[in-house]
């Protein structure tokens, strides 16, 4: 479902004398339907960078990223927009929403943009928020004022609202207590069971041992220091 081949990435810092930082070389990985692959590697090795390139908000220098039958590296913006609507989900570490929108609607939105009737979308959102222990009295409020852990859970509910065939999870269990961590892990297991291909970053070793089928060490894609790379 997700196939990354010979991917590389540079950052060019135009406002710091045009410094070019090579951050990734020859990245390869595959995620099959029903499989959860964990990205591992030291902080700064490029785990989030790789994930953002698959999501399409970081540009690749070369290589290919197939998600289904679309190559994200070559795709037009509108193809990536369509991919994100129906096929590829992403739970980032930050919740970014229009202030004032009620939590229930924030979670239901991915379903609404796909044309799901409002009552159905809201019922699904309510179900997820209950499972993630967000008290019902908060559903009509904007999540912008919630605590970090609550925002994280709203973000997860939103990411799991639509059954995406491919999912990217950036530290979905960080800042959660044991009970909520267990809920997130069972959501991941359920998504695998329905055939979703999942790529995740988990710092929590117990969590990753529980849901990941394999690991990919991003450190092996880190370019050699100055001069060693062609």
């Amino acid at each position: 479902m997700i196939r990354v081949s010979n991917l590389s990435k540079n950052f060019t810092l135009h406002n710091q004398g045009g410094t070019v930082l090579p951050v990734m070389r020859g990245a390869d990985l595959t995620v099959m339907p029903g499989e959860c692959v964990g990205l591992i590697g030291a902080s700064g090795a490029g785990k989030s960078t790789l994930m953002r390139m698959i999501w399409g908000n970081y540009l690749a220098a070369s290589g290919s990223i197939m998600v289904g039958d679309l190559d994200v590296v070559q795709a037009e913006p509108r193809q990536i927009i369509a991919l994100r609507r129906a096929t590829l989900g992403y739970v980032s570490q930050f919740l970014r929403v229009v202030p004032r929108v009620p939590t229930l609607d924030v979670v239901a939105e991915p379903l609404l943009v796909l044309g799901t009737p409002q009552d159905q979308a809201r019922a699904r959102a309510a179900d997820l928020l209950s499972r993630l222990n967000i008290p019902e009295r908060l559903w009509s409020l904007s999540p912008t004022t919630f605590s970090g852990g609550e925002q994280q859970r709203v973000n997860i509910a939103r990411g799991f609202a639509h059954p995406y065939p491919a999912l990217l999870l950036d530290e979905p269990t960080a800042s959660l207590d044991a009970a909520n961590r267990a809920v997130v892990l069972s959501l991941i297991q359920e998504a695998k069971a329905r055939g979703a291909a999942i790529l995740g970053i988990f710092h929590d070793e117990a969590a990753r041992a529980q849901v990941c089928d394999r690991f990919v060490d991003v450190g092996s894609f880190t370019p050699k220091p100055q001069g060693a790379a062609a």
């Binding site: 950052f11 060019t12 135009h14 406002n15 953002r52 399409g56 908000n57 540009l59 913006p77």
Partner: peptide, 18 residues
């Protein structure tokens, strides 16, 4: 020009970076 989050998160042109 490009996807909104790509231009904002990984700007390529010097002016956009600024």
């Amino acid at each position: 020009q490009g996807l909104t989050d790509q231009v904002l998160d990984d700007p390529q042109h010097a002016y956009t970076q600024l």
